[in-house]
Deep mutational scan, measured.
Amino acid sequence: MWEAGIQHIELEKGSKGLGFSILDYQDPIDPASTVIIIRSLVPGGIAEKDGRLLPGDRLMFVNDVNLENSSLEEAVEALKGAPSGTVRIGVAKPLP
């Protein structure tokens, strides 16, 4: 389960991407759907250096692409398709 509020994070995407990987996970509230979760951070990558994204965070959007009900493929496309420079990411943090 995740917090209702969405944290807005801006990262600078370079030639090596944003520095994290994702996975799809069965939604605990709606078993028929999936949620997109941050799986891991690349050591020394943009996301790890920034410090705000953590494994277990739920990915909600990338720039103007809503990922609340997306497939893993759609989420990967949104991340890979984001141009270099500032990328806006929304995440919901896990409940304590």
Results as ranks from 00 to 15, higher is better:
residue 82 A to Q: 06
residue 67 L to K: 00
residue 27 D to C: 10
residue 34 T to Q: 15
residue 61 F to V: 11
residue 78 A to Q: 11
residue 44 G to H: 14
residue 19 G to L: 01
residue 39 R to S: 10
residue 74 E to G: 06
residue 46 I to W: 04
residue 54 L to C: 06
residue 31 P to W: 05
residue 35 V to A: 15
residue 29 I to E: 15
residue 41 L to Y: 02
residue 83 P to W: 04
residue 81 G to P: 02
residue 15 S to L: 14
residue 84 S to H: 11
residue 50 D to H: 04
residue 27 D to I: 08
residue 46 I to A: 10
residue 89 I to V: 09
residue 41 L to T: 07
residue 57 D to T: 10
residue 55 P to Q: 15
residue 64 D to N: 14
residue 93 K to A: 04
residue 10 E to Y: 08
residue 26 Q to S: 10
residue 5 G to Y: 11
residue 91 V to D: 01
residue 6 I to F: 09
residue 9 I to W: 02
residue 2 W to H: 11
residue 74 E to C: 06
residue 23 L to R: 15
residue 9 I to S: 02
residue 26 Q to N: 15
residue 39 R to I: 04
residue 62 V to S: 01
residue 14 G to V: 06
residue 8 H to G: 04
residue 89 I to N: 00
residue 4 A to I: 15
residue 75 A to F: 02
residue 18 L to C: 04
residue 44 G to V: 01
residue 81 G to L: 12
residue 84 S to A: 15
residue 54 L to D: 13
residue 70 S to Q: 08
residue 78 A to D: 02
residue 60 M to I: 11
residue 48 E to N: 04
residue 33 S to W: 05
residue 5 G to H: 07
residue 7 Q to K: 12
residue 27 D to P: 10
residue 10 E to S: 11
residue 16 K to R: 09
residue 55 P to I: 14
residue 32 A to P: 15
residue 21 S to V: 06
residue 70 S to N: 12
residue 21 S to W: 03
residue 2 W to M: 14
residue 5 G to R: 08
residue 59 L to F: 02
residue 67 L to D: 00
residue 80 K to G: 10
residue 48 E to V: 06
residue 38 I to M: 02
residue 69 N to G: 13
residue 56 G to P: 01
residue 15 S to N: 07
residue 37 I to T: 15
residue 87 V to G: 02
residue 96 P to I: 03
residue 20 F to R: 01
residue 85 G to K: 07
residue 34 T to F: 08
residue 72 L to V: 11
residue 55 P to Y: 03
residue 83 P to M: 11
residue 19 G to M: 03
residue 77 E to C: 10
residue 71 S to W: 03
residue 50 D to M: 03
residue 95 L to T: 10
residue 47 A to S: 05
residue 56 G to S: 04
residue 62 V to E: 00
residue 12 E to I: 14
residue 34 T to V: 09
residue 25 Y to R: 15
residue 65 V to T: 13
residue 14 G to Q: 12
residue 39 R to L: 04
residue 89 I to A: 01
residue 18 L to H: 03
residue 4 A to R: 07
residue 89 I to S: 00
residue 30 D to L: 09
residue 61 F to Q: 09
residue 72 L to I: 14
residue 35 V to T: 14
residue 38 I to A: 03
residue 25 Y to D: 15
residue 89 I to R: 00
residue 84 S to L: 14
residue 88 R to E: 15
residue 16 K to G: 05
residue 67 L to Y: 04
residue 77 E to W: 11
residue 82 A to W: 03
residue 87 V to M: 06
residue 58 R to F: 01
residue 66 N to C: 09
residue 85 G to H: 04
residue 63 N to W: 00
residue 43 P to W: 03
residue 86 T to D: 05
residue 45 G to D: 06
residue 31 P to Y: 09
residue 72 L to E: 15
residue 5 G to P: 07
residue 65 V to S: 12
residue 88 R to I: 07
residue 25 Y to Q: 15
residue 29 I to H: 14
residue 31 P to V: 07
residue 73 E to C: 15
residue 38 I to W: 01
residue 8 H to M: 13
residue 86 T to C: 12
residue 22 I to F: 05
residue 71 S to E: 08
residue 30 D to E: 09
residue 65 V to I: 08
residue 87 V to R: 01
residue 35 V to K: 13
residue 17 G to L: 03
residue 59 L to N: 01
residue 47 A to P: 03
residue 80 K to V: 09
residue 21 S to T: 07
residue 66 N to G: 12
residue 58 R to Q: 04
residue 83 P to K: 08
residue 58 R to S: 02
residue 96 P to D: 08
residue 26 Q to K: 12
residue 17 G to S: 05
residue 86 T to W: 10
residue 3 E to D: 08
residue 37 I to V: 15
residue 80 K to W: 10
residue 77 E to K: 06
residue 6 I to S: 08
residue 96 P to G: 15
residue 44 G to M: 12
